[in-house]
Write a protein that binds this DNA or RNA. Structure first.
Lengths: 147, 147
DNA sequence: AAAAGACTCATCCAAAAGTATGAAATTCAG
DNA sequence: CTGAATTTCATACTTTTGGATGAGTCTTTT
């Protein structure tokens, strides 16, 4: 995902910058059209930047690049839960519905359900309440994290 | 229920004891009928005793007459959960389904659901996982009580 | 005796959760 | 670069939950 989308980001940015550049010469002419172009381009750039920035932040890290990820992996993964599954479990422990979890993690409801099922299987439990309890017992999630 | 059924218990016991007593004189005669009567009476007494004992135990107490109940009521009832509701919450915390809870408490599924709904309302939560978490936080149920 | 609280149950309906299966893209390690 | 693991998503179906309402019984209290 990274390489491809970074490339995409670059291309789109370049394209939009080109538009901006092309309109640069007419910016002082007071043409309405040009102003509209600039506005649109600016908004697009902003939106795309936010979009990709968001996805990139989610992958590596914001302040502590990879340390955070690794410590997560090692400290918590006694049952073999993946990072994503731990995130889902954490939100389940807070009493969220699958839909809410999906919204929070920007994934679809079916995906959350898939994660949930895998979590139950890995944790050898049958139900959500059991998974949460066991997760607390094993120190996978923090207790008293009620919303 | 108490007065009426205690009276009933007394009456039935008396009646059966009377039968036993009446057959007392012929017990040494080796009459088969008498032995059958005695057996039936004994079984009946036992059964009725168990039945009423069961109901009475559920109402007052087994070893510590009322102290147990009251302490339960006071220590735990910070939110106003009834004893029955606490029992249901306890089983929910263990990860049981409503059906399993019903089987455990000898009540129907709809009844369990009624209790559950009342619990959620009293605890001001929306979902089972939240109720369990909050119950643990408030000390209403023991943590780490996973089945 | 009436009122209030607790416990029980039912029915209907809607939402959420869970299961199974298949599939595609990505990432990461060897 | 290939293969394993991860993550994502969909569709269809079943089970479990939850909500609303109404109602009956029993116990305790007033």
């Amino acid at each position: 995902m990274l390489k491809k989308e970074i490339l995409l980001y670059g291309l789109i940015s370049f394209a939009i910058l080109s538009i901006l550049n092309a309109s640069h010469y007419t910016i002082f002419l007071g043409t309405n059209k040009t102003e509209v172009y600039i506005s649109v381009a600016a908004v697009l750039l902003l939106g795309i930047g936010i979009y990709f920035g968001y996805k990139l932040v989610g992958k590596s890290a914001s302040s502590e690049p990879e340390e955070n990820q690794l410590s997560l992996n090692r400290k918590k993964n006694s049952i073999g839960l993946s990072n994503r599954e731990l995130e889902v479990l954490e939100l389940m422990a807070k009493g969220h519905t699958n839909q809410e979890i999906g919204d929070a993690l920007f994934i679809s409801l079916p995906t959350v359900k898939t994660h949930a099922s895998n979590i139950y299987e890995k944790m050898d439990v049958k139900r959500r309440t059991q998974a949460v309890q066991k997760g607390i017992d094993l120190g996978l999630v923090e207790p008293r994290t009620l919303v």
